[in-house]
Each structure stands twice: as C-alpha cells, then as structure tokens.
Design a protein around this nucleic acid. Sequence first.
DNA 1: TAAAAATACTCCATAGGTATTTTAT
DNA 2: ATAAAATACCTATGGAGTATTTTTA
Lengths: 307, 307
Amino acid sequence: MNVSLRQLRVFQAVLEHGGFSRAGAALGLTQPAVSRAVRELEQALELRLFDRTTREVVATAAGLRLQGKLTRVLDELEDALQAARLEGAQAHGVVHVASSPTLSASLMPLLLARCRQHYPQLRLVLHDQVQRLNIEAVQNGLVDFGLVVEPDAATPLESEPLLEDDFWLVCRRDHALAGQAAAHWTQLSGQPLVLLDHSSGSRRLIDGLLEQHGVDCEVAQQLGHSQSVFRMVAAGQGVSISPGLAMPLPAGSDLRVLPLLPAARRRIVLIKRPHRSLSPLAQRVWRLALEMRRELAQAARPDAWGA
Amino acid sequence: MNVSLRQLRVFQAVLEHGGFSRAGAALGLTQPAVSRAVRELEQALELRLFDRTTREVVATAAGLRLQGKLTRVLDELEDALQAARLEGAQAHGVVHVASSPTLSASLMPLLLARCRQHYPQLRLVLHDQVQRLNIEAVQNGLVDFGLVVEPDAATPLESEPLLEDDFWLVCRRDHALAGQAAAHWTQLSGQPLVLLDHSSGSRRLIDGLLEQHGVDCEVAQQLGHSQSVFRMVAAGQGVSISPGLAMPLPAGSDLRVLPLLPAARRRIVLIKRPHRSLSPLAQRVWRLALEMRRELAQAARPDAWGA
DNA sequence: TAAAAATACTCCATAGGTATTTTAT
DNA sequence: ATAAAATACCTATGGAGTATTTTTA
C-alpha cells in the first residue's frame, strides 16, 4: 500500500478544480506532475479514479466514493498535525517551577515579572519548597524544572549554571570583626555560629567550607529561614554566614555584612530531568532565565546595593 | 506542511515498539532510516516527539497527544483506501446490461450462465428493450453497457465487435425457392416480405441490403418480434429475411432456412459510453463476453444446429 | 562494556520539470 | 485548430542502506 499524502492531495485538487492543469496550477505543480501523481494513485489502488478526455475530467463512481471518505479524513489529519505544530508555537499554558525559599524570594520575582512581560498568556506556577523536595519534584516530573542550589554531582539531574552567589559574614555592628573591610574564614574560629539548617541547599556547602578552612567553632543555632537567622544574629546569638541572595537584612537591624576571604560561593542552577525534554513552553521560561543571568547576578551583590 | 504518511507510520511504530531499532525491524527498515524519519517529522512539526537515550525511547507529552489523534485518523485513512482497493477486486455487486430482444433471447442466456459460473456473487440485471432505448440507456449511464446490433458509426458510443450474424432467407417448405441450396438476393424481387419493424436494429440493415441489390419488392407485414414474423411466414404471408440469432424457428412450423448470396451479415457489438470507464465489475462481464466470442458465434449458425 | 541511537557517506528511486506528442471537441 | 492530457526524457532531491561514532546504563 504505497499511497502518499501527496498523491491524495493531488487527487483532491483534481476533483476540486476539474482538470489536471488547473489542479497543478493550484498546487504549484505542472500538469505532467499531476498526471503522474494520479496515475500512480490509480495503480496503487488498482482502480480507475478519473475518466479523462482532453476536454474534461470526470471522476468515476469509485473516485467519487473515495473522495467522500477522503476529504473528512484528510481534514482531520491536517487538524491533528496543525494542533501539534501549534503546541510548539503557542504561548499560553502552564509551567511549573520548583524553587528554593531563598531563591523564591530573591530571583523568582524578577523572573516572574519578566515572564509576564514576554509571555502574558503564560501562567507560571511556583513550587516554593526546600531543596530536597525540589529535586524530587523535578525527578518525578511534578514540575517542569527547578531553580536550586547546585546539588551534589551524583544527583541524576541535568543542570545549567545560572549565577554564582558569594558567602558573606553577617555580624552585629558592635562585633569584634565588624570593623574590618573583610574577614578571613580562619577568623571565625571560636565564634558561635547561627546558620540555616540542613533543609537548605547551602548548609552542606558551608559545612564543607568551614571544615576546608579548618575553622573550629560551634553552631549555636540553626534555623529554617534566613530572616530568622538574621534576627538571631541581631539578638547576639553569634555571627552568620549567608549567601548574598538571602539578603537584604531585616530593616532596622544593626548588622554588618563583610566579604569572606578567600571568597567562596554557591552556584545557583536550573535543573531538569536528565534526557527529558522540556515542554515547549517550559523551554521558553528556561531560556528567559538564562538570558537574565547578568541581571540576576546583581541580586546576589549586597555590596552593590549598599547594605 | 511537508509531512508524509511514511513518517507518521514510523512515528506510530516507534511508539508501539518503544525503540528505533525494534520499530525499524517491524517496518522492514533499518535503525538509521527510522532515526531519520522521526527527526524529519520533528523538524516538520517543530516539536520534539520523543526523549531518547540509548536505553529507552519515551514519548514526550506532545508526542502522546499527537499519537492519540493520529491512530484514529490513520486507521480511517487505511480503511478508506482499503475500501477503494477492494472495490476493484471484489466480485459482488450489480451490473446492468441493456440488450436487444433477439439477443436477450439468444446470447444473453449463454452470458448469464457463464457469469453465474465465474462470478456467483455478481447480479446481472438485464434491460431487455429495443435498439434505440438501449443506445439511450447506455448514453445516459442508466446501464453499464449494452449488447446491440452495430449502430450507425455516427452514434457517439464506443463499441467492441462481438460476433457477426448472417442474414438468411426464411420461407415455407412449399415455396418456390425452398428447393435451392441457397438463394440470391435478386431472387427476392416480387416476393412479399415479412420483416421486423424499425424498432429492430436489423431492419435498417435489411432495407439497405435490399436497395443495394436492387431488389424490388413490397413489405407485406412488419412486426415487433421474430417469432411473430415466422408465424406470418408459416401462414403464407410471404418470405422473410432473418438473422441467424433470431432463430430457431417455432417448433412444428414447416419452414426452411437458406443462405442468402452474396452473404450479408449484421455485427453484434458491445457498446458503452465513450471515454467513460466501466465499473470494475462491469469490466469483468464485458471481458467475459469477449472471451465467449467463438461460443456465441455458434448460436448464430442455424445450419450448424441443423434447423 | 554492551546495547542502542546518532552521524557520515553513498546509492538509487522517485518527484518534478521541460519539451513533445496525442487526442477530442 | 485549439486546448488539454499523455508521454518521453532529464535532473535533483530524498529515502534507505552500510559503516562508524557516540552515549548511557
């Protein structure tokens, strides 16, 4: 059964226009091309479809019967393909993005705003939850993609770096280190620390950095949210190490932020299921985020906005 | 929209078999061919249909949606084409044949019997009517084809000779000419004739022959049916000129049949609309009639069956 | 490391075009 | 005589094959 869509479309055009030359003109083909297509179709079906003289082309009974069924089916086929094609082009629908709390507060508002500008028809649903749940949501396909702290390399995910976010020292203005332009990691030894707990993706990195620099100190408090951490520091419970994106500090709190040396940072990445393509719509949002890289990086610079 | 059926079938096969190699095997294609077909389809739709690793091929959401619509539509298309194809091959249905009275009585029974043998599923409807109506029925497409005395060459019809049917002289056994082995046309001069009327296709020919041979005689009687003619001859109303196919003579009638010299004959032909194809079924009957030529010719030889 | 898809290339079949012939009105 | 389809022939594109490379579990 070697019938092609091309042949069927030619067949229809001949019926519609009542002639091979006219049908050809309508299709952008020459008369011999039409002639051949019809002949091939007739041979494939072992059935004469047209009775043709040089003056007129008349469909046979069989041709008319075929035409009846064909128009409907071919129209449906066109619709199905058109629907598929539009799916790739259309700009409305829903995209689900998982994002860690700090990022939901700092980066996502920027992305959402931009998204609204570019794709007003697109609804972006934010899944604001902790690192582990974000990763699971991505892996299970519950969300289109995630915006998280770079996970362990062993995690089966595909990730795309978005920006780097430095760690800063946060302390009270009356703290011993507050006067310095910058603080060295070793200077943290002996200082009571107030940190985010392990539900945060950064905590793992901070633990690693402290160990790496041989810092010997105790975690006096650990909390789920950065703002709580800052309050604790303001209340004199110790100093904190915080990524830039977790700022700004609570208004009116008497805290200082200083660079840590040597500089250390976490990577913020977009993640998605490995070897799974994003929906066309999700792709747009993903790309939009990447295009915003420079702009987003600004949000991670407390020194730039003078805190 | 340059999508081919081929590509869609490949797409379906990949979904069904869950792999390019397997799909290829099922379709009788190689893996690279499948790979290419899928890629082409994806490019045509500007849409990713499969997420593929070397270990597994998974349809994307868009792919699955397309699949849903496609299976139904493609099945319908196959059905439509299959129905068309079968139409050319199937052996049941109705064929309408117009036939002149003499032929309905002589040739058609033979054709009908043979038809029943070869195509028991086929119903052959006989339209037994006079020449003019037969021709009109064919021209108007009321019947598939006709079996008639060869009409005037100017008649817009396509005809195929089937057999030739000699004219014979029919007279009473006690008639002056009855003793001869054959009769010459000129010997008919002065004889009262009993002939078929002009509703018969042969009458025109007989008139022509009489004039051609300069026969000077009167038509004593003209009738619509051959059997009536023979009765008239038996009743002594005159002699008759009759084609072989109009025989046999009525049983028990004391008539003789002798050849006319020089031999004259009418041609029995199959006729159909010019430049119109026969339905596949009608074609079979038409061809069957042509295959029976020799056999049918026997029915036109009263000498052979010794009347 | 093995199994499967992607890629590179080569070849042939098919589709389309131009030029010409045939045919019906 | 004209208009349209059929035919012949040529070219270019595309589809399929083999061989090879890449990739992931």
